[in-house]
Design a binder for these strands. Structure first.
Length: 195
DNA sequence: GTCGAGATTATCT
DNA sequence: GATAATCTCGACC
């Protein structure tokens, strides 16, 4: 599996589609991801170089990169590329296929099954991933990644949710499985107004 | 369904 | 002190 992940994020991203992430009793089939290409990517946390937050992204592939954003939310990534090069695939959405009652209990809002893991922060909550799971090994740790045996069909398009300058959504680095109800219908990123 | 805006805090400057 | 790889709610179509 490590050989499959030891490549650029835009190549790894389609492979993760259809994969299953398992944490305890809850399992989610990934239906939407985004590629982050490290220091050459203006939308990536690694764009300004290594720091405490993105250190895991520079580490070896096959590990979990979590980060906190907007003061309330956590997002999860799969690290790819060899140690020393920052690159990761953001898990944006998925379908809860096991432990649905447990996942629903964590999500106080949106009890509908299609909404349980529709969005990066929701996915993390449904799975029970925490910020201190950062750096966990996805083959041996609490959070497991199971790649599919065959490549799922997928579509590619502009990234969403990246609020950086210069239109970082111009790169077609968002991948999803067509026809999945759990793929987020979210609008493109809007610049945040200050209060 | 789409659109606008506020919430809330770790991390970085 | 400013920023942010988001979510939720309310208003409108």
């Amino acid at each position: 599996m490590l050989e499959l992940l030891n490549r650029p994020a835009i190549e790894v991203a389609p492979l993760v589609l259809g994969a299953v992430v398992r944490v305890g009793e809850v399992a989610v089939r990934i239906t939407e991801v985004e590629a982050y290409m490290g220091e050459e990517d203006p939308g990536s946390h690694a764009f300004r170089g290594p720091g405490k937050r993105n250190a895991v992204m520079y580490g070896p592939p096959g590990h979990l990169y979590t980060y906190f954003t907007y003061g309330m939310h956590t997002c999860a990534n799969v690290v790819c590329m060899p140690e020393g090069i920052a690159s990761a695939v953001l898990l944006r959405a998925g379908e809860v296929i096991e432990g649905q009652s447990v996942a629903a209990k964590r999500r106080v809002t949106s009890q509908k099954s299609a909404d349980l893991a529709m969005g990066p922060a929701r996915l993390v909550v449904a799975l029970g991933i925490r910020l201190d799971d950062a750096g966990a090994n996805l083959q041996t740790g609490r959070v497991r990644l199971e790649l599919p045996e065959s490549q799922s069909p997928f579509s590619a398009g502009p990234r969403t949710g990246v609020a950086g300058e210069g239109g970082t959504a111009e790169y077609p680095w968002r991948f999803w499985i067509p026809g999945e109800p759990s793929v987020s219908p979210y609008r493109a990123a809007v610049k945040r107004k200050r209060r």
